[in-house]
Design a protein around this nucleic acid. Sequence first.
DNA 1: GGTTAGATATATCGGACCGATATATCGAGG
DNA 2: CCTCGATATATCGGTCCGATATATCTAACC
Lengths: 171, 171
Amino acid sequence: MIELAILGLLKQKPMHGYELKKELTAQLGQFWQASWGSLYPALSRMEKQTAVERVFPKTDVKRRKNIYRITNLGEEMFQTALSEHSSISDAARFGVKLAFFRYLKPDARVELLERRRAYLKEKLAETREKLRSYKERIDAYTYSLMEHDVDVTTADIAWIERLITEEKAHS
Amino acid sequence: MIELAILGLLKQKPMHGYELKKELTAQLGQFWQASWGSLYPALSRMEKQTAVERVFPKTDVKRRKNIYRITNLGEEMFQTALSEHSSISDAARFGVKLAFFRYLKPDARVELLERRRAYLKEKLAETREKLRSYKERIDAYTYSLMEHDVDVTTADIAWIERLITEEKAHS
DNA sequence: GGTTAGATATATCGGACCGATATATCGAGG
DNA sequence: CCTCGATATATCGGTCCGATATATCTAACC
């Protein structure tokens, strides 16, 4: 997840860790946050995988900032991760992907949106069924939360469907 | 978090790990899930802290099931954790707390609900401000997600306020 | 010129948690 | 008796979070 976000930001321009953290917060902070303890180890991992590389060599000890740039392999990994049909059930992960939707082809966008819609519809049906059949056995506060969840998920689906409609209108 | 959930379920009746997992999924599964890798280590931790204890001693090797029961200390820890004003910013954590609201005094319930409402209002104001001032610099898909987030958060606040009203009406 | 405060910058540690997997036993049905 | 699915416990590798440590750069002030 954090690797997708890092690659997506490094596509804009090479950056060092601190700058990445600021951009992460500015661009994705509404629905997802990264910590130092995930950012720097992720950059190390990705350098080892050669998904990113330092603009100036590691041996240049005097240099304070470690500026990273995305590699060709990194670009491939980004496209693969972004197109993958996972992270459809996690609102935060889906939000991060959405922030990079402009890097996907329109049909790939529609594909992801429709999978998200399918997941939400399934979840909605399950919650409704549970509300219907277990009514007596559910705690009153949990019941209220589940009713609210039905409303929110319904609104979610309507929003996704607006995005799908717009996407298809533009193609 | 998982410790609050375990203690809350063990208040109902003593259970073993597998049974706890099933009840966790049945009662809290709508908004929060636990894994084996968190459940069993949590039970071990909690036994060490004497928040829970085995109904039959550890030395009884023949016994297949490890049935745990909540201790007096565990009851205290449950009440403390439930009343704490944290986990106000995480929907899943708040959902778990809500599922145990019946164990709180009405004024403690209102207190938590009002803190959640305050957090949501703050978040709403921030998102609106960002939408207003950064309009041009935000990616179109992110912008749409943020607009949707405004709607969802507004609905969240209205729901919380209904709960507060009901709570006050009953007291 | 010197000092201080706050922003910039990197890094790591302990612990919690997830997803996957290993292992074994129980009970029902053929 | 055998097999299969449910029951039951446990651990492993890896990721992530929250906190913390450390150092430098820069601008402001006296």
